[in-house]
Design a protein around this nucleic acid. Structure first.
Length: 995
RNA sequence: GCCCGGAUGGCGGAAUUGGUAUACGCGCACGACUUAAAAUCGUGUCUCGUAAGGGAUGUGGGUUCGACUCCCACUCCGGGCACCA
C-alpha cells in the first residue's frame, strides 16, 4: 500500500465534493432541517487564525453528523467585512477597501476550503456587497419609521486617534478597544437605536433559549434589571436660612416656600428613615433651576464645570475620592419622617441611571457612607443584621419571646484588652459561647443602668465608666435552653472603661458559677478570632473600624411603625406609605449607532431644512458608498463622506428641494445583526429573505424556533449576541421573521492561546500559521489535533510538538486499511467498536470532541493488533471518524466500495467516488447487547481503602458477589479477627466492607 | 470591590457526576526491526519504600463506608463588570 499522502488525498476528495456539490443545502426538502451556524469571520489581512478552525471544525463535525442522521443541513459561510482595520489599511496604502476586502476574502476562502469544511459555498455572503447592505439599510429605515432610530445630542466616547465615536461596549478601561488610546467625552449628535425599549424582553426571553448559563448571566448583568421605588422628596427653602430664628412661624412659612420636588430611584425603600441627605447628579436638569435659590451659587457652578471637564478615566478611577457640594439654602423633606435634610450635588451620582438623583443612606450604602464620612453628614442605622444562630437555632413549637438585651464591651484602656466571657458545659447544646458581657434589660431600666448592674453581677468590677453606645444594633434569634423558649433579641452594645481593679464577690447560681463561667481579658486585635457569636463579632468590627455601611437586608429599627419588619416587607409598605411607586430600571443604554468613518453602510437619511430627517425611499436602496480617493479623517470628527459634496448634496425625497445626505455610517455590528437571516435566501432581490425560506430554516414555532445551533466566542456575549437578539425581536414585531429568538442553542468555544499560555499576537510573534500546518501534516491532522487539544469550551494552549500524535492516529487508520478484511467477526473488537460508537455519538452532542477522539484512538490500536476485522465493522468505524477527518474517511470508504471482498485496499486504485459519499451514509447505531460485559473486574474496599480486585459475572447476584469479596485472600487478611459491620455493594463498581 | 471560570504527573488533559485517580496524547527511557538512521512496533514512566505497605488531585478543615467530585474558610491564575443607588 502506498504511504499516506495527505496532499493528494485531500485535494482529490475536495475536488470531488465540489464537483458533486454535495454540501449544497436546498430550501426545498422533505427532510427535517438543521441550521448550524458559526460567527462569520472578519476577513483580516492576517488570514485565517487557528481559533477560527477550532469553532469551524466543531460545527462542521456536528453538521456532518446531522447529515448522516438524515437532516437537511444548512452550514453557511460569509464575510463580516466592514470595519476599521480595512479602512485604516486603505488610508495607509491608498488601496480601496473594496479591493482589500476582495483580496482578503479570497485568501480566507482558499484557506477554509483547504480544511474541508462542509459549507454551502453557494450561499456565501459579504456585508460590504451592496446587494447585502441594501437590506441592512432597509432594516434601519424600519427602525426609523417606528421611531426606534433617532438622533440625539449625547456625550460620546471619542477616540482622538481613530477619530471615531465609540459605543460604551467598545471602550475598555476608558481606552479605545481597537487602538488603546484614552478616550474622551464629547457632545455630539448621534444616531441611536432604542434597544432599551426591548430591555425587558431581552431579559425575560433568555428563559426560552438554550445558552450556557454564564452567557445568560452576563447578558442579564449587562441588561441590569432592577426593581425599586420612585419616591418624591419635596424641596423647600431652608427655614433656618431664610427666616429669623425668633419667628415662631418659621416652620409653617418654610412649608409655604415649596420648590420643586425631586424624584429619586432606590431599590432600598426600606432604608428611607436612614436617608440623611439627597444627592443630585451635576448634570441633573433641576440643578439649573435650583441655582437661583442657592446661597453658594458660584461655588456650585464651579463644581459643575469641573465635573464636566474630568475625563472618563478620572471619573472611573479605582481609588477615586468622592467629591460634592451642598446646595446651601435648600433642604429636602424626607417623606417618611418629615425631617429636613440637606441637598447635595456630587458626581458619584450618575445622570443617566434612575432619575439622576438619590436619597443617601450612609448607614446602609457604601458610597453614601464614604461620602458622609468625608463631609461629616449624619449616619443613622435603620437596618439591623439578622443573625440566626446556626449552632442553636429556634425550635419549632416553642414560644417566641422578644427581649431587649445589652452587650457590654468592657475595656481596660491601660493594656488595650477587653473582657470576654467563656461559657463552658453543655448549656447551649454542644456550643460553648465566647462573648461580651450580656444582660437582659429589666422593665423601665435604662441601658446604662442595666450595664452597670450586669458588670457588677457577672465580673464583680464596680469602678467602671460609661463611654458610648455603639450605633449598630443587631437582631438575633436562637433557642434558649435554660428557659426552653425561642428568643428574638434586640442587641444594644455599650462601651465601658475599667477605672480600677476593685471588685466585689460574685454571687453564684446554678447557671452562673465558677465551673461553667470564666472571664478573660483579650487584646483588641485578638477579639475577632476569640469571640464566637456573630452579634459580637459584627459589633466589635463596627466599633473597632470606626463603622461601616451594612448594605445587606435585615430587620428595621429606628423606623417608627415599621420597626421589626424585614427589609423585604418594608420595601413595599414604606413605598406605599410615602406615596411612591414600584418601578423597574435597567442599566442597558440605547445603542450609539453612528460612526464617523467611511467603511460602513451609509445611513440612508437626508437632512432637509424644510422636512427634517427624511428617509431615502426604499426603491432607491442600496444607497451605495461613493468611490473616493482620500479616506483620511477630518479633523472635525466628521465622516470622510462629508467631504464629497457631489454625494452629500442631494434633493429632498419629499419636497425635492436642496438637501444634504447623512454622512455617518453604521457600526460594523449592523451587518452581523441579521446575517443569519440572509443565509436562508441569499439571492433574494425583493426581500431580505423570503418568508417561506425563513419559515423552513428557522421553523414556524415562534417560541422554540431559530438557528438550531450557534457557536461563537464569549467576547460577543454582550455585543453581537445581544444586538442581533434585539434586531430579531424587532423584525418579529413587524411579522418579518417567524420566531421571537434568533438562536435556539448557543455554545462557546475557548480561545487558543499561544505557546506559553498567552494570547496569540503579531507583536509576541507566537501566531501559528495554519497554511503551514496543513501543508506539513494535512487538514485531517490539524482538525483532529484542534479537537483533541482540550475541552472545547475552555481555553487551551497551542503546542506544535503535539500535532504529531494526531498525525500518527491518521496514519494508523491508513495502515489498517492495508489489512486483509474478513467477514468473520472478532467479538472482542466488535464489542469495543460498539462502545466507541456510543461514546463518539454522545460526545459529539456535548462537544466533548477530545474524549471522542481518545476513544477512537483506543479502538484503532486494537484494530491494528487484530488480524480479523470485519469489513462492515471497519466501515462503521470510518463513519464515526468521518466528521472529524472527512478526507481520509472518504478516501478509504470509496476504496472499500471498489475492492472485491477480502482484498487489501492498498492494492487497489480507487476510482473516484464509485459510491455515494460517506458523509451521506447512515450514522451507525450501537447495539446495547454488545456493550454489556458479561465479566468484569470490580474493586473491594476495606474501611474505604482499596485492597483487592475480584472478577464477577453479569449474572451473579449481590449476595454472591459479597461472599466472593469476603472470601478473597487479600481481603480476608484485612478482615481477620474483626467484626464486619456493614457491606456496601455498588453495582458493577465495587464492594465496600466496613469492619 | 463585585460577578463568572479554573488549579490533577515533566507537559496537554481523562475520571460514567460520590465508587479502582492519572484514560488518551506529547515527551522521556529501554527493547525489537535496520549496516545505520528515520519511521514503525513493544515495554516502562505520580511519589516514598527491597518488600509488605504508605502518601499524592492548589492550601486548611468538615460530611461520608468511600471525596478530584459535596459543604465551610483561604491562596494563586484567567476573564468580565466597575460609583447602576
Amino acid at each position: 500500500m502506498k504511504k499516506y499522502d495527505h496532499k493528494k488525498i485531500e485535494l482529490k476528495v475536495q475536488k470531488e465534493w465540489e464537483k458533486k456539490k454535495i454540501y449544497f443545502a436546498s430550501s426545498e426538502s422533505k427532510k427535517p432541517k438543521f441550521y448550524s451556524l458559526i460567527e462569520f469571520p472578519y476577513p483580516s489581512a492576517a488570514g485565517l487564525h487557528v481559533g477560527h478552525i477550532r469553532s469551524n471544525t466543531a460545527m462542521d463535525i456536528i453538521s456532518r453528523k446531522r447529515r448522516m442522521e438524515g437532516y437537511n443541513v444548512l452550514y453557511p459561510i460569509g464575510w463580516d467585512a466592514f470595519g476599521l482595520p480595512t479602512e485604516n489599511y486603505a488610508i495607509k496604502t491608498g488601496i480601496h477597501p473594496t479591493k482589500v476586502t476582495k483580496d482578503n476574502t479570497d485568501i480566507f476562502r482558499k484557506q477554509l476550503k483547504a480544511l474541508g469544511f462542509s459549507f454551502d459555498w453557494s450561499r456565501e455572503i459579504n456585508t460590504t456587497d451592496p446587494a447585502y447592505y441594501k437590506w441592512t439599510q432597509w432594516i434601519f429605515l424600519q427602525f426609523f419609521k417606528k421611531g426606534l432610530a433617532y438622533k440625539a445630542e449625547i456625550p460620546i466616547n471619542w477616540c482622538p486617534k481613530d477619530k471615531i465615536g465609540l459605543a460604551n461596549e467598545e471602550v475598555i478601561d476608558g481606552k479605545c478597544e481597537r487602538c488603546g488610546e484614552v478616550t474622551e467625552k464629547r457632545m455630539k449628535e448621534q444616531w441611536m437605536l432604542a434597544i432599551t425599549k426591548y430591555a425587558e424582553r431581552l431579559h425575560k426571553d433568555l428563559d426560552l433559549v438554550d445558552y450556557p448559563e454564564r452567557v445568560k448571566l452576563s447578558q442579564r448583568n449587562w441588561i441590569g434589571k432592577s426593581e425599586g421605588s420612585l419616591i418624591s422628596f419635596q424641596l423647600i427653602v431652608d427655614s433656618k436660612v431664610s427666616f429669623n430664628k425668633k419667628d415662631t412661624n418659621s416652620k409653617l412659612k418654610a412649608k409655604n416656600q415649596k420648590l420643586e420636588a425631586i424624584s429619586v430611584f432606590t431599590t432600598r425603600a426600606d432604608t428611607i428613615f436612614g436617608a440623611t441627605y439627597v444627592v443630585l447628579a451635576p448634570e441633573h436638569p433641576l440643578v439649573a433651576k435650583l441655582l437661583e435659590q442657592v446661597k453658594n451659587k458660584k461655588d456650585v457652578e464651579k463644581y459643575i464645570k469641573d465635573a464636566k471637564k474630568k475625563s472618563e478615566i478620572e471619573r472611573t478611577a479605582n481609588d477615586k475620592i468622592k467629591t460634592g457640594i451642598e446646595l446651601k439654602g435648600i433642604k429636602a423633606i424626607n417623606p417618611a419622617n418629615n425631617e429636613e435634610i440637606p441637598v447635595w450635588i456630587a458626581d458619584y451620582v450618575l445622570p443617566d441611571y434612575g432619575t439622576g438623583a438619590i436619597m443617601a443612606v450612609p448607614a446602609h450604602d457604601e458610597r453614601d457612607f464614604e461620602f458622609a464620612k468625608k463631609y461629616n453628614l449624619p449616619i443613622k442605622q435603620v437596618i439591623m443584621p439578622y443573625n440566626l444562630d446556626t449552632n442553636n437555632p429556634p425550635r419549632q413549637g416553642k414560644e417566641n419571646t422578644k427581649r431587649e438585651v445589652v452587650h457590654i464591651i468592657l475595656r481596660n484602656p491601660k493594656n488595650k484588652t477587653i473582657l470576654i466571657e467563656f461559657l463552658k458545659g453543655e448549656k447551649w447544646g454542644n456550643f460553648e459561647p465566647k462573648n461580651f458581657i450580656i444582660g437582659g434589660i429589666e422593665e423601665k431600666e435604662s441601658l446604662i443602668k442595666t450595664a452597670f448592674r450586669e458588670i457588677k453581677e457577672e465580673t464583680g468590677y464596680i469602678n467602671v465608666k460609661f463611654v458610648e453606645e455603639i450605633s449598630f444594633e443587631v437582631q438575633a434569634e436562637f433557642y434558649a435552653a435554660h428557659k426552653d423558649v425561642n428568643r428574638i433579641v434586640h442587641v444594644h452594645t455599650l462601651v465601658f472603661d475599667l477605672i480600677n481593679e476593685e471588685k466585689v464577690e460574685i454571687k453564684e447560681d446554678e447557671y452562673f458559677n465558677k465551673d461553667s463561667h470564666e472571664i478573660k481579658w483579650i487584646p483588641y486585635e485578638k477579639v475577632i478570632e476569640t469571640v464566637n457569636i456573630p452579634d459580637d463579632k459584627m459589633t466589635w468590627k463596627y466599633f473597632f473600624e470606626g463603622g461601616f455601611a451594612f448594605s445587606e437586608k435585615g430587620i428595621l429599627t429606628n423606623s417608627e411603625k415599621f420597626n421589626g419588619l424585614s427589609s423585604l416587607e418594608a420595601q413595599k409598605k414604606i413605598t406605599e406609605f410615602v406615596g411612591g411607586k414600584i418601578v423597574t430600571k435597567f442599566k442597558l443604554r440605547d445603542w450609539v449607532f453612528s460612526r464617523q468613518r467611511y467603511w460602513g453602510e451609509p445611513i440612508p437619511i437626508v437632512n432637509c431644512e424644510k422636512c427634517g430627517l427624511v428617509p431615502v425611499p426604499e426603491k432607491d436602496l442600496p444607497l451605495k458608498l461613493p468611490k473616493i480617493k482620500n479616506y483620511k479623517l477630518t479633523e472635525t470628527g466628521e465622516s470622510p463622506l462629508a467631504g464629497i459634496s457631489k454625494w452629500v448634496n442631494t434633493k429632498c425625497p419629499k419636497c425635492k428641494d436642496k438637501a444634504k445626505r447623512e454622512t455617518d455610517t453604521m457600526p460594523n455590528w449592523a451587518g452581523s445583526s441579521w446575517y443569519y437571516l440572509r443565509y436562508t435566501d441569499t439571492k433574494n432581490k425583493k426581500e431580505f429573505a423570503s418568508k417561506k425560506n425563513l419559515k423552513y430554516w428557522l421553523g414556524s414555532d415562534s417560541k422554540h424556533g431559530g438557528v438550531d445551533w450557534y457557536n461563537g466566542g464569549m467576547e460577543h456575549t454582550t455585543l453581537h449576541l445581544l444586538y442581533s437578539r434585539f434586531w430579531h425581536k424587532f423584525l418579529y414585531d413587524l411579522k418579518l421573521v417567524p420566531t421571537i429568538e434568533p438562536y435556539m442553542k448557543r455554545t462557546s468555544h475557548g480561545m487558543i492561546l499561544g505557546e506559553g499560555g498567552v494570547k496569540m499576537s503579531k507583536s509576541l510573534g507566537n501566531v501559528v500559521n495554519p497554511d503551514k500546518i496543513v501543508k506539513i501534516y494535512g487538514a485531517d491532522t490539524l482538525r483532529v489535533y484542534e479537537m483533541f487539544i482540550g475541552p472545547f469550551e475552555e481555553a487551551v494552549v497551542w503546542n506544535t510538538d503535539s500535532i504529531i500524535g494526531a498525525r500518527r492516529f491518521i496514519e494508523k487508520i491508513w495502515r489498517i486499511g492495508n489489512k486483509k478484511f474478513v467477514t468473520a467477526s472478532n467479538l472482542e473488537l466488535k464489542k469495543l467498536l460498539h462502545k466507541t460508537i456510543k461514546k463518539v455519538s454522545e460526545d459529539i452532542e456535548t462537544m466533548r470532541f477530545n474524549t471522542a477522539i481518545s476513544a477512537m484512538m483506543i479502538l484503532t490500536t486494537e484494530m491494528e493488533k487484530s488480524d480479523k476485522i470485519d469489513v462492515e465493522d471497519y466501515k462503521k468505524f470510518l463513519k464515526i471518524l468521518s466528521p472529524f477527518a472527512p478526507h481520509i474517511a472518504e478516501e478509504l470508504w470509496q476504496k472499500i466500495h471498489s475492492a472485491p471482498q477480502g482484498l487489501a485496499l492498498g492494492s487497489l486504485k480507487a476510482r473516484p467516488f464509485p459510491a455515494e459519499s460517506i458523509h451521506f451514509s447512515k450514522w451507525p447505531k450501537w447495539d446495547e447487547n454488545l456493550i454489556k460485559d458479561d465479566e468484569m473486574k470490580i474493586a473491594v474496599q476495606v474501611n474505604g481503602k482499596i485492597r483487592a480486585e475480584i472478577v464477577i459475572k453479569n449474572i451473579e447476584n449481590e449476595e454472591d458477589i459479597k461472599k466472593k469479596a469476603l472470601s478473597d485472600q487479600i481481603v480476608s487478611k484485612f478482615t481477620a479477627g474483626k467484626e464486619i459491620k456493614k457491606i456496601i455493594y455498588v453495582k458493577n463498581r465495587l464492594v465496600s466492607i466496613v469492619v
